[in-house]
Design a protein around this nucleic acid. Structure first.
Lengths: 157, 157
DNA sequence: CAGAGTTTTGGCAGAATATTGCAAGGGCCC
DNA sequence: GGGCCCTTGCAATATTCTGCCAAAACTCTG
């Protein structure tokens, strides 16, 4: 993970469809070196996968919501079960267990309120362990980019 | 946006580095048709861009946090200013204005608590309009995938 | 239901790109 | 300083991309 790797990761997180020649020019190297670096970064699990990002609104899923969840008991078995049921919900893109006065936070892309409520019902209704869920609908997007900054400080690692 | 487009978007959101031949086989079509469909989906803004996803922990940014923010006045000008300052913070990946008893929710990838606090100080300290910010650190990931499900219902659009 | 016009499709060939082997250069440890 | 190992860059080869054309499918009209 030297300075060249950092530049490569930094660029590929923003533009994943560059040719190796373009990438080489952008980072100041050669195509074959870039190819080898990218493959080694993938093998190391630093670059996990290449994806296309899509416009949720144009796919008919413009209703985004952040759902916070509190539970009564949040032990290992219950968390595993929750992870499984969340995984089965295609409308949920992100789901995390968190510290603080909440237990889990979910982010979903819904077609409409009907689908939102149906999803919540499937996830939470009937589960006596869920104390409460609160939904914040996204009304404005200030920033939306999965890129993680590449810190020059880790050149040594 | 017919059934073929939906299959293409569905697959490319998961694997963006397929060759057109592989994509063609996966969706039951031919490479040249896939090329044209992908281009037209990009031009239509349905597929927005192609990126590599990276492992935050391996980039030295394993500390993920969801920060909720409440403000006193959240008018248009203040929201624009907030969007700008959030945009200047590389550690913040997502930032949204939301409905409910919160005004904004941020998600960031931090190197450590020091960087977390420094970022919060830059964003919130000195801004008398920020009533409160509360942080939930992500302790467990149940699901983490930017893919938006492609609903067959929109075949007609 | 037939026919013309329009759009989309599938395959091909040339061009561009990705990939690999090999020799040379540079860094590191002894 | 010498030997070893990793990385680099070039050139050759394999793969993939892409513009083009005829054919098929679809749409609209009479």
């Amino acid at each position: 993970m030297d300075r060249l790797d950092i530049r490569i990761v930094d660029i590929l997180q923003r533009r994943g469809d560059l040719t190796h020649a373009e990438l080489a020019e952008a980072v100041g190297s050669t195509p074959s070196t870039c190819l080898r670096r990218v493959r080694s970064l993938q093998k190391a699990g630093i670059l996990t996968r290449n994806v296309f990002l899509a416009d949720g609104a144009k796919l008919g899923r413009g209703l985004r919501a952040i759902i916070t969840v509190t539970t009564k008991d949040y032990d290992l078995a219950r968390r595993a079960a929750f992870a499984k049921s969340v995984g089965a919900e295609p409308a949920i893109s992100y789901a995390y267990g968190v510290t603080g006065d909440l237990d889990a936070i979910l982010i979903g892309n819904f077609r409409d309120m009907v689908e939102y409520q149906a999803t919540c019902d499937r996830l939470f209704d009937g589960d006596k362990n869920i104390t409460r869920y609160t939904t914040h609908f996204i009304s404005e997007t200030y920033k939306d980019d999965p890129a993680i900054p590449c810190d020059p400080a880790l050149s040594g690692g």
